[in-house]
Design a protein around this nucleic acid. Sequence first.
DNA 1: CCTACCGATCGGTAGG
DNA 2: CCTACCGATCGGTAGG
Lengths: 197, 197
Amino acid sequence: MPTIKTNRNSTKKEVIINKASKLFREKGFSATSMRDLAENVGVEAASLYNHIQSKAEILQEICFRVANQFMTYLEEMENSKTSSITKLESILRFHIQQMIHNYESVHVADREWKHLTDPYLSNYKTQRKVYRQRLAGIIEQGIQKKEIKKIDAPTAVLIMLHAVSGIESWHRSKQKISAELLEENMVMILVDGLRAS
Amino acid sequence: MPTIKTNRNSTKKEVIINKASKLFREKGFSATSMRDLAENVGVEAASLYNHIQSKAEILQEICFRVANQFMTYLEEMENSKTSSITKLESILRFHIQQMIHNYESVHVADREWKHLTDPYLSNYKTQRKVYRQRLAGIIEQGIQKKEIKKIDAPTAVLIMLHAVSGIESWHRSKQKISAELLEENMVMILVDGLRAS
DNA sequence: CCTACCGATCGGTAGG
DNA sequence: CCTACCGATCGGTAGG
């Protein structure tokens, strides 16, 4: 039956992508071999190619899935009827939550995208740039409405996005505060640094 | 003459390390081959080994030099007679300036240290951990003295350090604000997010 | 500093 | 999904 066959293939492909996310995060894309990956999946290296076309394709899947999630949420916030500072706080919380619960793939998309190859690489760079510009746009609206203090919007974007990627260190630490407390602390420091007066 | 010979060797070694910093940042440690590096230096790959012992040694030099610079500055601040918030601001400014002017090697030390091998890897991890703990200690002193708002100190450290690594994006952007403005904006957002009431 | 070369490992394919 | 294997490239060495 085609339906069952498709499900089986996509399921196995998901297993491969999940294991690859874990390995790419731990060792980096270049230092992870297809034989490493095969061992983690539990098959021979050659068998991976029944489910994926190349090592490059795995990275593409990881990066563009993550990019799409963030772009979707950004658009949702752009269309919502709230203050700029609330939009910004929601987006920040979304980033934090994604970094906590979808750690492996978000981290790979953030750190290993440079290893994409060319039609995909330039596409990804463009998406990244557009995302940051639109996020800066929300901040600039907030500045005009005097909700946000007069700062350089691209610099604020840069701080927000990179601060969140620091959750990597939180994941690795032994004595962790809870995910909720982490989120509240990050929002308190970052949003209070932006809020006017 | 031994003096001249030593100078020549160390000079060429510096050239190799500088070119390696640039390549490791652009492509990552694993994706940079010794043949890439040799081509950039202007010699054959085999000739590199007259100045360095291994690819691993280059990464060690880069990472530990950077680590020592930051540790030295931290100790200087710990011993200075100023408020906790001023110490913190000074350290933040030092990180920003290093990231701007010593970009390639600081970035490599921050992102590629995972590729160190074992006696060096565990040593580096320990140094990193100690640095963060002592930085958190300064923040905790500031909280006790009511200079800094009640936040989780390790989380604040994580935000500060990672926000600074975002200067990478600033380096790559075409329409840059000046280094001075970048520094002022980052300090304004991050320090104001920490300062009590 | 170069030529010549090493064993190991890489991503990927053929064929079953 | 496996065995067997490919050409390419890797970090590094010998010898001059």
